Amino acid sequence: MVTLIVATTSDPASINPATALLAMPGWIAGPILPPDIKSFSNKQTRVIQHDRSILKEDDLDLRWEEATGEVIDEVIFLSRHTAVSNRPALTVHPIGVLHLKDGESPPQGGKPGWAALPNPRIGPWFRLLKKMAEAHGLVPEFEVFVV
């Protein structure tokens, strides 16, 4: 199982966790995906980093497979999310825009009427996120939820 983690240097909510992850031992530089996406590998995990918005990046798993021959089992995006309440929030959620119909233009990218299947690890990730937020005194200032 190969996991692809996608980060962008244009979003602190993306680059800060990616920087912390890449500071852990075992990472080596990987191939550069066209046009200029850097990558790193550690066991069965790959991190790709670029300076564009990750909201407009489609088919990164297929692009990775084409460039490397590795099949990606899951893609995780590290990104900022704006809560409907406009309160600071920490979220874990599958990607997609099911609420839009064909022909409507998603403001943050994606395909209208489509969403990825939820990863079975979302539940455990959410429980860990909630536990860490409470341990660091971020609750109740931050909402912690699954979308």
Rank of each mutant, 00 (worst) to 15 (best):
Q49V: 15
Q49S: 10
H50N: 03
D51S: 14
D51Q: 11
D51T: 01
R52I: 15
R52F: 06
R52T: 15
S53L: 10
I54F: 01
I54W: 02
I54P: 00
L55A: 09
K56C: 10
K56W: 10
E57D: 14
E57N: 04
D58T: 08
D58I: 05
D58W: 06
D59V: 08
D61S: 08
D61L: 04
L62H: 05
L62F: 09
R63Y: 12
W64T: 11
W64H: 05
E66R: 08
E66V: 05
A67E: 13
A67V: 12
G69L: 07
G69T: 09
G69F: 08
E70G: 07
V71G: 06
E74S: 14
E74Y: 05
E74W: 07
I76F: 06
F77Q: 08
L78K: 01
L78A: 12
R80W: 07
R80S: 10
H81V: 11
T82L: 09
V84W: 04
V84R: 02
S85K: 00
N86Q: 12
N86W: 08
R87Y: 01
R87H: 13
P88G: 05
A89D: 11
A89N: 03
L90Y: 06
L90A: 10
L90D: 08
T91E: 07
V92F: 06
V92E: 03
V92L: 05
P94E: 01
I95F: 07
G96E: 03
G96H: 09
V97N: 03
V97M: 04
L100Q: 02
K101L: 06
K101S: 08
D102C: 02
D102E: 15
G103C: 14
G103N: 13
E104A: 13
E104P: 00
E104K: 02
E104V: 01
S105F: 00
S105Y: 00
S105L: 05
P106Q: 12
P106E: 02
G110Y: 00
K111E: 10
K111R: 12
P112I: 01
G113Y: 03
W114Y: 12
A115G: 12
A115W: 00
A115M: 08
A116T: 12
A116C: 12
A116S: 15
L117G: 04
P118M: 13
R121Y: 11
R121N: 15
G123W: 11
G123V: 14
P124A: 15
W125I: 15
F126G: 10
F126V: 01
F126I: 10
R127W: 13
R127L: 14
R127S: 15
